[in-house]
Amino acid sequence: MPRLLDLGLDRIRNIITDMARLSESSVFSALEAYESESNAKKHIFEQSEKLRTLQDEVTDLAIELIARYQPVATDLRFIKSCMEIAYGYSRFGRYSYDIVDVLETLGPLSGCNKHAVSEMAITVRKMILLSVNALESRDKTAAPDLYQMDDTVDTLYRKYLRELVSNLSKNSSDEPRCYISNLLILRYLERISDHACYVGDSVYYIITGSSSPRR
């Protein structure tokens, strides 16, 4: 017979699964809009808002479960982690919106060199999928893989920054809006990458009760 707490845990798990898929879709849509110069701002804004609402729902439910059932051990760690993961997914939504906002504010960007963003987006997409799957399959081994990919993302970010400074000092003919848009989007991707790592950390914590070795 399921415990009363299990009904609440199932509900929280379902919301988190919905958030995972929605946040993944939100980031992928934003990157697609950036690459194809399409207008997805309204759609992504709605997704971002939905993620924020779901994050509040997770927090409210988590507090209610703690107050009513005093969960311990794995249950308690799961609830704590769900609050952190929900925050991470809500940030995915917010950064997606920021990406399309750059497109609207500084676009059209079709004449800009988008190579740096495209290169980083490949790794970030993989990280999102890995973190979402790690949560669903309770895979603690994802955390070190995510940190390895995060190192790649950080390296790309720093490399672009150095190139940018170098090009600016050479009075390059490229348009400033290209630099600024690339820099902003790379920064948002770098933050998404960090949050994907935190999701991996939370999964590791749920399973082992310890902080991920990297932290």
Binding site: R3, L5, P71, V72, A73, T74, D75, G209
Partner: peptide, 17 residues
Amino acid sequence: IFKNPHKELTEKYISGR
């Protein structure tokens, strides 16, 4: 014991399973 018990039996008991 209450955050991270090492034995499965302990975990089951304290979490009502």
